[in-house]
Amino acid sequence: MIYLKLFWAFFQIGAFSFGGGYAAMPLIKQQIITTHHWLTINDFTDLITISQMTPGPIAINSATFVGNQIAGLPGAFFATLGCVLPSCLFVTFLSWAYNRYKNLSILQDILESLRPAVVSMIAVAGIDILLPAVFPSGSFSFLPGQVKLRPVLYFAAAVFLLRKKKKDPILVMVLCGVAEVAAQLLMPGI
């Protein structure tokens, strides 16, 4: 039953992504690529790119997108429902507990030790997106013909604009896209 599968996959994503934003990305990748093969790594990368360009959390965007791709509108509904249900249960319970006890310290201790793990997992997901873009073989190799030059340039330019010029991430990504369109139109075949 595909609806149940979608619901359960995104329920796990919703229940275990602590830290917001990119924290959901490693879980999404594991569920929809490794476990269920619902998207290719290329589609997944496009999905993350699209998520950056639109409002809304990555997890909700992914649930709606994957649900639609796999099983149409009902699929999107069940995937998205699965994604928000853990939040609803957990946060409502905590709000209730907070109203009664006004104390959050144990939770914050646990969260503090989750943060380093989450950072590392986001790093791994980022590397997994970047490597195939730069190396056609998908792993480090600096032999001639094994490195795509233009993505390396875009990456370096993007890092410069983000870190040194403090430019908006959406603008930086769009510039990378526009540069590639221009490159392919002006120098076809390279």
Binding site: Y22, Q52, M173, L175, C176, G177, A183
Partner: peptide, 26 residues
């Protein structure tokens, strides 16, 4: 297709930049 391909390198930079900040805080 070209747009999305080009943006992949940018997305990688954005994610690793976030990681750098978060890792620095840790």
């Amino acid at each position: 297709q070209a747009m999305l391909n080009g943006m992949t390198a940018g997305v990688g930079a954005v994610i690793l930049s976030v990681v750098y900040d978060m890792g620095g805080d840790v």
